Every structure is written in structure tokens, then in C-alpha cells.
Amino acid sequence: MGNVATNFTKQIEILKSRGMVLDLSEDKIKEILLDIGYYRLGFYWNPFEVDKDHNFIEGTKFSDVVCLYYLDVDLRNLLLKYINRIEINFRTKVVYYVSNINKKSPVWFIDKQVISQDFINNIDYHYNDDFIKNSRPIKLHHQKYINDKYAPAWKTLEYFTFGTILKIFKCLNDVKTQETISKQFDVLNLSKFINIMETIVLVRNCCAHSGVIFDITTPKGISILPGITFNKNNRHCLDSAIKVIQLILSKISNDRKNDLEKSINDLFKSHEDNPIIKKIIEDKIGYVY
């Protein structure tokens, strides 16, 4: 679209000129463009482009682009549901183990004996007036205990993001405490556990913020662990990230792990009759039918 806004008529003309088959009615296409947006849909017709001028593979259909978009929506919603279970479980374990080891320090997340000075120096980024205002129990705590600068860890961490909880975990001074928590998920190597959790947080953030998930790649290779086989030895694709999500989920609830695995397989297999979408699932996501 360049730097100049365009209306529906111009957008449709651009798609036609680049070779897209507009196999839906013009009214329906306009409805979709107003619903999803030309720019956002561009992420989903990108796999169909053949050159830097954004021309499309011959026979590229608008309906296939929309189909890929809704596959991505379904995938994000599905993954977010199960990652939420991991997030809560991980947060609970961090709060429980660190708080019980440091009983005399209820606000241990700003205690230099417990956590690195780097995290403490940046606490205002996480715990500030907006945080207090937007977290009702934290707000009520400060109204009741007016001399407290911070609420106790078991209250505060409940309202920190998954990414912040992982950051706190990584900043703990006591490696033994980190290893205790890692072992709760049957991962004995601490660096591998951190790598896996970073992967899960990356996928979670993409899903939570409506990012494009089908072609996500992890900046770091996902750690190799017993029981996981990465398709084509690709340790950066979404399918490999899903495998480690299933692994961690299985340590919380094997039933939920099986539910996720079945739901993912059912979702992808529902598109196997569409060769265009099937190829994208195989090539971009890394899934093997």
C-alpha cells in the first residue's frame, strides 16, 4: 500500500493487477477488507507472492488467503488456551517456592539477597501507578496498608505478565531454587528449561497480541530434550514450539496435553483437502500429516 491510503476499489484493483483470483463477490471482499484490513491480510497473501513486486502465483484465490487467516486465528486461540494453563502453573510454583524459602521477605522481588540488582533497578517499569490502578487487589492492598510500598509477592506476581514472571525466575540469585522449580517440570538442565519457557512466552505473546503465528520462527533453536522429535530437525518452527508446549503441559496435566495434541491435529487435518493450505501448514508451520 506504500505511504498513501487507498479505498476498497483501489485495493481490489491492485489485487487484480497482481494476479489474484477474486473468487468472492465484490461486496463480500469489501466486507472482509473492512473487517480484517488490507494491511493485515497482506501477511496472509505473502506466501502466495512470487516476486518483490508482490505478484501472485498463478491461480491464487482470495478465498485461500482468507482461509489461511482464519486458520491462524483458530491456532492462536487454541494455543493461548493451553499456554494459559502453563503460565498459571509456572507463576504458582515460582511464588510458592521462593516465598517459602524467603519467609521473612514477603516482597522478595525487590530484595537484593533474593533477586539480582538489575531487576530491582527496573522495578518501576513493572510496579508503578498504572499497575496499582489496573490491578484491583493491589489497589485495595495499598488503600488498606498505606505504608506499604509494595504488596507481598503472592499478590504482586499474580498480576505480572508471563514474561515478567520468567524474567524474575531468571534473575533469582539462588540457582538451587531455580533448579527446584525446573525439576517440577522434569527438566533437569536449567539452561534448557529457560530456553523452553522463553519459547512458550514468545508464542504466548504472539497469540495474545494477534500476531501472525503460522510462520513464526524462534530466534534461538529450541533445546533438544528426551521424548521430542523435531520434524526435519527444524528447531525454529511453530510445530517444534508446539511440541515443547505439549511437553511442559504434560507435566501439569497429561489429559490437557492430549487435548491440545488432538485439537491441533484436528485443526490441521480439517484443511488437508485444500492443497494450497496443506502445503503452507507443512512448509511454514512444519507439521507432518
Results as ranks from 00 to 15, higher is better:
7 N>G: 06
8 F>L: 11
12 I>E: 04
14 I>N: 03
17 S>F: 08
21 V>G: 01
21 V>W: 01
26 E>A: 14
27 D>A: 12
30 K>H: 00
31 E>M: 04
33 L>S: 01
34 L>M: 10
44 Y>E: 11
45 W>G: 09
47 P>L: 10
50 V>H: 10
50 V>D: 10
51 D>A: 08
52 K>V: 02
58 E>V: 05
60 T>V: 13
61 K>A: 04
66 V>W: 01
68 L>A: 05
70 Y>V: 10
74 D>M: 11
77 N>C: 07
84 N>G: 15
87 E>C: 15
91 R>L: 10
92 T>Y: 05
94 V>S: 11
101 I>E: 15
104 K>M: 14
104 K>D: 15
106 P>W: 06
106 P>V: 13
107 V>D: 14
115 I>S: 00
115 I>Q: 01
117 Q>V: 05
118 D>R: 14
118 D>M: 11
121 N>P: 14
125 Y>W: 09
127 Y>V: 07
133 K>G: 09
136 R>G: 00
139 K>D: 10
140 L>K: 04
140 L>N: 04
143 Q>T: 00
147 N>E: 06
152 P>R: 02
156 T>S: 14
161 T>M: 12
161 T>Q: 11
163 G>V: 07
167 K>Q: 00
168 I>Q: 02
168 I>A: 02
170 K>L: 00
172 L>W: 05
178 Q>F: 13
181 I>W: 11
181 I>E: 13
182 S>D: 07
183 K>M: 14
183 K>N: 15
186 D>Y: 10
189 N>P: 12
190 L>R: 11
192 K>G: 04
193 F>K: 02
200 I>G: 02
200 I>K: 03
201 V>G: 11
202 L>S: 13
203 V>M: 06
204 R>P: 07
207 C>A: 13
211 G>E: 07
212 V>C: 11
215 D>G: 00
215 D>Q: 06
215 D>A: 12
216 I>T: 03
218 T>Q: 08
221 G>E: 05
221 G>S: 12
225 L>K: 02
228 I>G: 04
229 T>W: 08
230 F>C: 02
230 F>Q: 03
230 F>T: 01
231 N>P: 03
231 N>T: 04
233 N>D: 04
234 N>V: 01
235 R>E: 04
237 C>M: 03
240 S>F: 00
244 V>A: 08
244 V>E: 02
244 V>C: 06
246 Q>H: 12
253 S>M: 11
264 I>E: 02
266 D>L: 09
270 S>V: 12
270 S>L: 12
274 N>T: 11
277 I>K: 11
278 K>V: 00
280 I>M: 13
281 I>K: 09
284 K>G: 10
285 I>E: 04
